[in-house]
Design a protein around this nucleic acid. Structure first.
Lengths: 207, 207
DNA sequence: ACTCCATGTTTGCACCGTAATCATAGGTTG
DNA sequence: CAACCTATGATTACGGTGCAAACATGGAGT
């Protein structure tokens, strides 16, 4: 009686449009991929791309922030996949270290390749706080990095080391996409990834 | 014939309003300080606070981005002052290291205390590229950190070490103000600064 | 066949950024 | 001193946005 309703499960309905929710999220992603400007992502523009009226999105999202959060959630899922692919799952000691560096490079390359999406992921805040699905998606992505760090350091310092690594690569990514480290790096994800890998290996000042 | 014109030097006019340009920048700063939301900073709202018509700002800024850039420039100047104050100018070896840690803590505390302004500083981009004054202000702030790092490491690696330190503190600041590291830290600049200081001292994974 | 309700549309409002046009004030110059 | 000239600010108008409210539609369950 509840699961038999036409649009009970969001994202797989089959009525007028069929997949409006998914189409809107896809439209949002395409907007971010085209014009790096995050302010270009709007409800009306997304509806336009989905071939639907301007108010239709409100049947699937309570407000604009909710759509942004849904798009950001997809972004975190993509980031998690990218990190997992870069890690490779090596278990040796040297392999584990290289896996961490590869994750850092992938993190920065991801941000560099899709700056609009990356910025949205860390600014999407629906009604003051993040929706649960967004939190879960970001936590899942962080877990990939956190788990790798856990294989490299004692358990006691694992949490802080993971946070330090995250902050470092996140800082590099943010500075690069905001144009603070030279134009040559921003438009070249490979160069940005190489920079991240180099900074991760760098000897610390506390030597 | 040119310098004798009433409003030749922007920012120090004395006509109808007197200091409209400065008043608009101040209004922008106050907007950012009140509602953490950066999207609340608009031309019309700034004009409203300055007690002037909605179109008046266009006599002092070509478009909205230019006002944002001017506000961001003030933000970088404030950040530079905060970093210089935190550094203290110590010259001993241990003092120098502590000065660097203090700068990192001050950087994160600044972002935590004024998240809207901090975000604007790294997203203000007038017409695709940053105005010269904004670049100079950000470079001046970075120089404070860069110079301190230069006193701690060999000249050959100074540039990369400085960038690494900047990325680390910038990453911490970004993650904190975007609510990715726990609510307790975000609303407490002191706690955020302590976190930054701790992560800066942390042993690296390459041990 | 009838009804119901989720989905999509239409209309309307307040706000924003900005272009075009007009009004004014205060020095500059004859 | 008076006329003017230009920088500054005000008005009006246009397209865009997010959103609320009322309306239309069409497949699902009875």
């Amino acid at each position: 009686m509840s699961a038999s309703r036409p649009g009970s499960d969001p994202g797989k309905g089959g009525y007028h449009h069929g997949e409006l929710r998914a189409a809107l999220v896809a439209a949002g992603l395409s907007i971010l991929e085209e014009g790096g400007d995050a302010s270009a992502l709007g409800l009306r523009e997304a509806a336009r791309r989905a071939g639907v009226s301007a108010m239709a999105p409100y049947r699937h999202f309570p407000d604009k922030d909710a759509l942004l959060a849904a798009v950001a959630t997809v972004g975190f899922e993509r980031l998690r996949c990218a990190l997992q692919a870069a890690d490779g799952g090596g278990e040796g000691d040297a392999d584990a270290r290289e896996a961490l560096y590869a994750q850092g490079a992938a993190y920065v390359a991801f941000a560099c390749a899709q700056p609009g999406l990356f910025r949205l992921m860390f600014s999407a805040r629906s009604g003051g706080s993040r929706p649960a699905t967004l939190c879960e998606a970001s936590a899942a992505a962080y877990a990939v990095l956190s788990d790798r760090v856990a294989t490299l350091v004692p358990a006691a310092s694992a949490a802080e080391e993971a946070l330090r690594s995250w902050a470092l690569v996140h800082g590099i990514a943010s500075l690069v996409i905001d144009g603070m480290v030279g134009e040559a790096v921003r438009s070249d994800p490979q160069a940005a990834a190489a920079l991240a890998s180099r900074l991760l290996r760098l000897e610390p000042i506390v030597g």
